[in-house]
């Protein structure tokens, strides 16, 4: 068993208190949601916070609120298990419930939070290792060094983003609210991610992701989230696809969103695949073309145990196809 390093723990009861603590402590402090990512990283000494600020005692960060006119608002500290079984989520935004149900294991879904999953750190088989293990190699970009063990000569870190909730939320045009002691800003979730494996999201030190909002559901809308991982439980995704399709009465695809997971630094929207389908009937040949576009947009690298990049890419095509076929039916 690896133990946690020594660190202080604070449990503010309001968002304002949490914000001011984060402002005072700066980068030494880390936010603690369910702990399923941060505590593991702390044990492995990937991160060494001197203070963790627990958000568990802040009531305003919890809960799911649905309004037919305003849509869905989810507090960042809502657990994945709550999302998985919430009747409004299951009824109006099924891809979200499916994504939550696919994270890690049931135990992790009880602990893991939506905010934590969106802020999930990127992963790499050379990075997610213990401190003694990493001593056998030069310090990598992600750990603050200047080499990449996956992509030689890389100037930026290729660690992969594997949060299942982000792609599922992006297909619904979700927005997130970021709060700090100076104020707040709202960002489209798809713009939250930076495209750099080292610092995968643009949340500034001191900022807290407090809310996720999703527009109201539209008529004749279908959505799903499919993922590939080695085992039926526990494992992180090696490929994932979230899809939302809106149909006209005629059965023609009015709108469509396709977002890939676990093949890049962040979620990967695939407008080329969406454009194939827009204005067309959801038929097999168009679906195949869309799947081909999705495959083209996926560029995984050899940073994960369990499957080669080429197989992960192949699975992106298959999952996209299967997701669209299931919505077509």
């Amino acid at each position: 068993m690896i133990r946690l390093p020594k660190m202080d723990h604070a449990a503010p009861s309001t968002l304002i208190d949490a914000c001011s603590l984060m402002r005072e402590q700066g980068e030494k402090a880390r936010l603690l949601g369910g702990g399923t990512d941060l505590l593991v990283a702390s044990k492995l000494r990937n991160v060494k916070p001197s203070l963790v600020v627990s958000l568990g005692g802040i009531p305003e960060l919890r809960g799911i609120r649905f309004d037919e006119k305003e849509g869905l608002r989810i507090g960042a500290m809502t657990t994945l298990n709550e999302l998985r079984y919430d009747p409004n989520v299951v009824g109006h935004y099924p891809a979200l419930a499916e994504a939550a149900a696919s994270v890690g294991t049931t135990q992790l879904q009880y602990m893991g939070t939506l905010g934590g999953n969106l802020c999930l750190d990127t992963r790499c088989m050379y990075y997610n290792q213990s401190e003694p293990w990493r001593k056998s190699r030069a310090v990598c970009l992600k750990m603050g060094g200047d080499v990449c063990h996956v992509v030689p000569k890389a100037k930026k870190c290729y660690a992969v983003f594997s949060g299942d909730m982000a792609p599922a939320l992006i297909v619904y045009e979700a927005q997130v609210k970021l709060v700090d002691s100076a104020g707040q800003r709202t960002v489209n979730l798809k713009d939250l991610y930076t495209g750099d494996g080292k610092s995968p999201n643009q949340i500034k030190p001191g900022e807290i992701l407090s809310d996720v909002t999703i527009p109201p559901p539209v008529e004749k809308q279908g959505s799903t989230y499919l993922k590939y991982r080695v085992r039926g439980s526990i494992d992180f995704p090696l490929a994932g696809v979230a899809v939302r399709v809106t149909l006209k009465d005629s059965g023609i695809c009015q709108d469509c969103r396709i977002v890939l997971n676990a093949v890049s630094f962040g979620p990967v929207p695939v407008p080329d695949a969406e454009n194939v389908l827009k204005g067309r009937e959801l038929k097999e040949d168009f679906i195949d073309q869309a799947a081909e576009q999705a495959t083209k947009a996926a560029h995984p690298v050899a940073n994960a145990i369990g499957a080669t990049p080429s197989y992960r890419r192949k699975m992106i095509g298959i999952l996209t196809r299967r997701a669209l076929m299931s919505l077509a039916n």
């Binding site: 088989m125 293990w133 056998s136 190699r137 080695v230 085992r231 039926g232 439980s233 526990i234 494992d235 992180f236 145990i305 369990g306």
Partner: peptide, 20 residues
């Protein structure tokens, strides 16, 4: 490439779960 074991954990050394 240096003979080091890449997956010394129950996450990456993948044993079957009841689902398999």
């Amino acid at each position: 490439d240096n003979g080091q074991m890449m997956n010394p954990s129950f996450l990456d050394f993948k044993m079957a779960t009841p689902l398999e």
